[in-house]
């Protein structure tokens, strides 16, 4: 934090600070508080009852399952893609990076739509799947695929700027000393990127568990079977089961807060090992 000895007078400063805080309070903090308030509106008993209902528990399990598949897959991909992009020069690199970033700028609904077009009854592979009695849409595989699509870029986006910053000299040194590819990655690169990798995984996980739009399109909304937690929130809300909806929502909000706290902790204590754009 730089000391700004010249500049705005004290009164103006405080006016600006309070305005900024008010904006954040209204737009960020209040919604969070509202979730908790609505969830506990009818007391702790009703809250826990809503959480442990069978459908809610299935939704929680499905969410965890989807994240358990999507996050490691995208982590492996993210590391491989970052390595390929930062340690070598090749034509078309910018295009590749743009493509990797693509799911980030596409509407979640479209992310789900593309899989419907591929696997739906009227889609390319629809008839083939039906003939082999394979269900992708309106079943868990479709949900996993849509989630993987949407959370695809997260790990790579964290790693690429950092690995660009760190350069290739350490890896070159390791190779000159006789190390092979995997050894170089494991002993030299991984320790240098571990905190950025953790941040990427945390964000990937938060999005994977919280994804709504894309999953909504491919899931079929079958209670107890193809409902993730966010979808379950929607169903309960539309049935005017406010306590139920907000109870599940509160779990997701809690997850978001834990993610934020962990990410902030990493940035505070290991900020020097994250990309410059991340440090604040």
């Amino acid at each position: 934090m730089k000391a700004h000895t010249i500049g705005e007078p004290g009164l103006l400063r405080w006016a600006l600070i309070l305005t900024a805080l008010a904006f954040l309070a209204v737009f960020l903090v209040l919604p969070l508080a509202a979730v908790l308030a609505e969830a506990l509106a009818k007391g702790w008993d009703r809250y826990f009852h809503a959480l442990f209902k069978h459908d809610s528990v299935s939704a929680i399990w499905l969410t965890l399952l989807v994240a358990a598949i999507a996050v490691p897959a995208n982590m492996v991909f993210g590391v491989a893609a970052s390595w390929a992009v930062t340690k070598y020069d090749f034509p078309g690199k910018s295009l590749l990076v743009t493509l990797i970033d693509l799911p980030f700028s596409v509407s979640p609904v479209i992310s789900g739509l593309v899989y419907v077009l591929l696997f739906g009854l009227q889609g390319w592979l629809g008839p083939w799947l039906q003939a082999h009695d394979l269900k992708i849409l309106f079943a868990v595989p479709g949900i996993v695929l849509a989630t993987v699509f949407v959370t695809f870029p997260f790990v790579a986006r964290e790693l690429i700027p950092l690995m660009e910053e760190q350069g290739r000299a350490e890896e070159e040194a390791a190779v000159v000393l006789g190390a092979g590819g995997f050894r170089t990655f494991w002993s030299v690169t991984l320790p240098n990127i571990k905190w950025a990798l953790l941040t990427g995984v945390l964000l990937c996980n938060a999005r994977a568990m919280g994804e709504f739009g894309a999953v909504s399109v491919v899931s079929g909304h079958i209670r107890g079977l193809t409902n993730t937690m966010p979808l379950h929130v929607e169903i309960l809300y539309n049935e005017y089961d406010l306590v139920g909806a907000f109870a599940v929502a509160s779990l997701l909000a809690f997850l978001a807060l834990v993610t934020l706290a962990a990410k902030t902790a990493v940035e505070w204590w290991h900020g020097d090992e994250l990309a410059a754009t991340r440090r604040h």
Partner: peptide, 15 residues
């Protein structure tokens, strides 16, 4: 079978 010393040393910072 060469030894190379890089301009900014390229020491493995976590070792």
């Amino acid at each position: 079978k060469i030894g190379f010393v890089f301009q900014n040393y390229a020491l493995f910072r976590h070792m």
